[in-house]
Nucleic acid binder design. Structure first.
Length: 846
DNA sequence: TTAGGGTTAG
């Protein structure tokens, strides 16, 4: 950058006789065409001893003009104290403008060392450098220099002190300096603007608004300027106080400040953040002069207020009007798509961005990662990771937490793309002290939803032990989801206690909904109901969560009562609500009621039946043995049946032994999902039940040929001595001998009272080596035997199974519940079964 | 002095 531009060629000037008259040197310095010209001339001046007292300033100016701060500094030091303070200031300002903050502070130190007294221009630059580093220690050292040089009553310097302390996050010091300004009676508009900005930066918008209001009250001669408005409007936005925002808007119009581009943009942003897009649009239309920020504020406003199509429309318009899109525009559109789960569209926009030559930054990358996570696009996720590694050097320059957010995004992306090891590896690269609450939460959530929920709880315990950072509502929700998956009532209760002790009021609705879900899935429906009853505020998720709980426990009537209660409370049922209602009807044998709800959901509630609703109906009709109607419904459904629909039909064929229809359903299912192990198992069971052993063998060899293995059944139990998991024929448990003994005795005893093994279920297992396993070695029976061995009489035994409970086990456990002093609660992949005194709550609808 | 981003429930 040239500070002085002169068209006269240097060569021409240089050919003239070098005068001993120094002003000519000044002209020659201005005429220099390159840094080496300046150096040469400087050297000549020194060697001839022709240094005029004014020349050093020209020399420094020339060096800065050719972007050589090191030469400038050398000249300043060499000629100090001849050079004016003005040129020390110029060098400090040069470094601050180029973000070389440490260099700026170093020049300041040298200046003081060389005996040049700083002036009221020096301190604002130096304080800005301290604030931007930020370094409270150096900032307060400079404050001391301010005082020792007698500048504590200079408003220019004091305002800069306020800003510095705010940037360093020490709002109390900023406030103290501001109060001293007022006491001295030297405050100006900038002082008030600085303290308002300080509170906004410190995330105290309420106090920012108070200070703004206090401005004119304390001094009637003060009139807010454009900066005051630009400072206060974000405070209105973050508090959502649109009324005050509107007043500021009115004030801007009355005082002629509305025409200021920054003010206009801040008003749009305020309305957009208050979700008042009509107002924002009016302001946008009124603005005579707009820039890309105005457009971006509108695009993001629409995207975040749920009007994404308007955002896209505006985005297209920007392109049509050749407005130069910047990284914010692109990132906002990518984020908008990603947040709506439209990952492929987001990735497409990202491609367009790259083609346009716009350089992605950390925010863009985070949005792209979230898009990859939304659609499980591991390949693109890995590519983005590669991009991050290549760009990391650039981002580390302004280390402001972006780096950690990108890493959090990567952990989340790998988790959601079911790449647990990569996710964990990324987590492990973040040093313990640098992990924030999101770092922990994304991994805990990843394990809870896509990985091993035990790992989630282990990580959560580790987080609590470390004590820093503290879990937030997101973390708690993820941990509760893990408990729900594992049916770990014990751990779930502990987290509930933690929630009560640590007050999560701000997010209590969300957390309470998770508690309802956790208690429901841990078979403590009464506790779920209690949480629900004590909630000061409920939303439709609260109602549906409890409704699901009742549905899973076969309490269809209660579920339907919840549905009525929800409608009475003025909440509108949606698609998911009806899935839950139909599920509850299906699992309680309320076929006609289910048909009634199915028919009325569109007619009375305006909810269109989706493929999931049809699947529920096929399940409902199928369980009740109305297979023809189920088949008929599949024929007339307006969309292509999904695999869930065929699984429902196939299961019904299994229960009601309809070989022909079962074969048909299995064919359809295998066309959609050729690797679905469950469909082979179900079909093989149907054949076995019908005595068609050759077909059973055919399926078995087909599976062997295609390499499809039956997912192993696994049951686990939360006993008094901790959790224990069992696979079929499992002999790995230390108490294995005792378990098998107890089981043999139980089977013997229930045979006496009428239990007959249902041998068709023995053929679940298709591998030859598994053939020999007896029914008595099924995982749920082993878990039950272990439960009986380790649970005190009278206490309930809770078992969880990853697949559907086997029919023989269901029958055996029903008999066992007659001869033992325990209620047995079994959760399988479909619902709960409460066994007590020889009967099961499912009443056969399992 | 203005705009954009990551984690949770039925």
């Amino acid at each position: 950058m040239l500070l002085f531009y002169c068209s006269r060629p240097f060569a021409q000037a240089h050919t003239r006789h070098l005068s001993t008259f120094s002003p000519s040197f000044a002209t020659l310095l201005q005429d220099c065409k390159s840094l080496s010209d300046v150096r040469r001339l400087h050297q000549q001046i020194l060697s001839r001893g022709l240094l005029h007292p004014h020349l050093p300033t020209h020399i420094v100016a020339a060096y800065l003009g050719f972007d050589s701060p090191s030469d400038a500094l050398a000249a300043l030091e060499r000629h100090a104290p001849t050079t004016a303070v003005f040129w020390w200031n110029a060098l400090i300002r040069y470094h601050v403008r180029h973000s070389n903050l440490n260099a700026a502070l170093s020049v300041f130190r040298r200046m003081v060392t060389h005996g040049t007294r700083p002036d009221h221009f020096t301190f604002p630059f130096v304080l800005k450098a301290c604030g931007e580093l930020p370094s409270f220690r150096r900032g307060s050292a400079v404050h001391a220099v301010v005082c020792s040089n007698g500048f504590e009553s200079n408003v220019f310097v004091c305002n800069a002190l306020v800003a510095m302390y705010a940037r360093c996050g020490v709002i109390e010091h900023a406030r103290q300096v501001f109060d001293e300004i007022l006491q001295r009676g030297i405050g100006d508009v900038v002082s008030w603007n600085s303290i308002v900005a300080a509170y906004v930066q410190s995330d105290e918008p309420r106090r920012a608004l108070d200070m703004f209001a206090g401005m004119t009250v304390s001094d009637r001669s003060l009139q807010p300027d454009a900066v005051s408005l630009v400072n206060v409007l974000p405070a209105c936005a973050s508090l959502g106080v649109s009324l005050q925002g509107k007043q500021v808007h009115g004030f801007a119009v009355r005082c002629g400040l509305f025409s200021d581009l920054f003010v206009g943009n801040a008003i749009i942003d305020m309305y957009a953040k208050c979700r008042m897009m009509d107002e924002a649009h009016r302001v946008f239309e009124c603005m005579e002069c707009k820039d890309v920020v105005s457009w971006n504020a509108m695009v993001t406003g629409y995207a975040q207020s749920g009007y994404f199509s308007d955002a896209l429309h505006l985005f297209e318009k920007m392109r049509g009007e050749n407005i130069r899109l910047n990284v914010v525009t692109w990132s906002a559109v990518i984020a908008g798509y990603a947040q709506r789960g439209l990952g492929l569209e987001a990735l497409d926009v990202f491609r367009q961005m790259q083609l346009s030559g716009s350089e992605p930054n950390a925010v863009t990358i985070i949005s792209v990662l979230s898009a990859c996570a939304a659609v499980g696009a591991l390949l693109q996720g890995k590519e983005t990771h590669g991009y991050v590694l290549r760009s990391l050097l650039n981002w580390n320059d302004n280390d402001n937490g972006d780096d950690l957010m990108v890493k959090n995004g990567l952990i989340d992306m790998y988790s959601k793309c079911r790449c647990a090891s990569a996710s964990r590896a990324m987590f492990d690269t973040v040093p313990l002290a640098e992990r924030n609450v999101v770092t922990w939460t994304v991994l805990i959530g990843g394990y809870a939803q896509h990985g091993d929920a035990n790992d989630a709880l282990e990580l959560f315990s580790q987080m609590l032990q470390d004590g820093n950072p503290k879990p937030n509502a997101f973390t708690i929700s993820c941990a509760l989801m893990a408990c729900a998956r594992l049916a770990s009532l014990h751990f779930g209760k502990q987290i509930h206690a933690y929630v009560i002790r640590n007050r999560y009021e701000a997010a209590m609705l969300f957390v309470a909904n998770c508690l309802i879900d956790m208690y429901s899935k841990c078979a403590d429906i009464d506790a779920a109901q209690t949480v629900f009853d004590r909630m000061p505020e409920r939303n439709s998720i609260s109602w549906t969560s409890l409704m699901t709980g009742y549905g899973m426990h076969g309490c269809g009537e209660n579920a339907l009562r919840m549905f009525d209660g929800m409608c009475e409370a003025g909440l509108v049922p949606d698609g998911i609500t009806f899935i839950v209602v139909l599920y509850a009807c299906s699992h309680s044998g309320m076929v006609d009621k289910g048909i009634g709800y199915f028919n009325s959901m569109g007619k009375d509630y305006g909810v269109a039946a989706a493929v999931e609703h049809y699947a529920c109906m096929v399940d409902l009709l199928g369980r009740a043995g109305r297979l023809d109607e189920a088949q008929e419904l599949i024929k007339i459904m307006p969309m292509k049946p999904s695999s869930v629909v065929w699984v429902a039909l196939l299961s019904a064929c299994r229960t009601h032994t309809n070989v022909e229809l079962g074969e048909y359903a299995a064919r359809q299912l295998l066309e959609l999902e050729s690797e679905n192990d469950g469909s082979y198992t179900l079909l093989s069971n149907i054949y076995a039940n019908a005595g068609r052993w050759r077909d059973v063998a055919r399926i078995r060899s087909l599976m062997k040929k295609t390499g499809i293995r039956k997912r192993p059944g696994c049951s686990w139990i939360q006993g008094s001595k901790g959790a224990a998991a069992f696979f079929v024929g499992d002999r790995s448990h230390p108490m294995s001998d005792q378990i098998y003994n107890v089981l043999a005795i139980l089977i013997q005893r229930i045979k006496v009272i009428g239990y007959v093994p249902e041998t068709s279920f023995a053929l679940h297992d298709v591998d030859d080596e598994e053939k020999g396993y007896l029914l008595s070695e099924h995982s749920e029976k082993l878990a039950l035997a272990f439960g009986i061995l380790t649970t005190p009489p009278g206490a309930p035994i809770r078992i969880t199974k990853n697949l559907r409970v086997c029919g023989d086990c269901h029958s055996a456990i029903t008999f066992i519940s007659k001869i033992v002093d325990h209620e047995i609660i079994l959760r399988d992949s479909s619902r709960f079964h409460h066994f007590k005194n020889g009967s099961c709550s499912c009443g056969g609808y399992w």
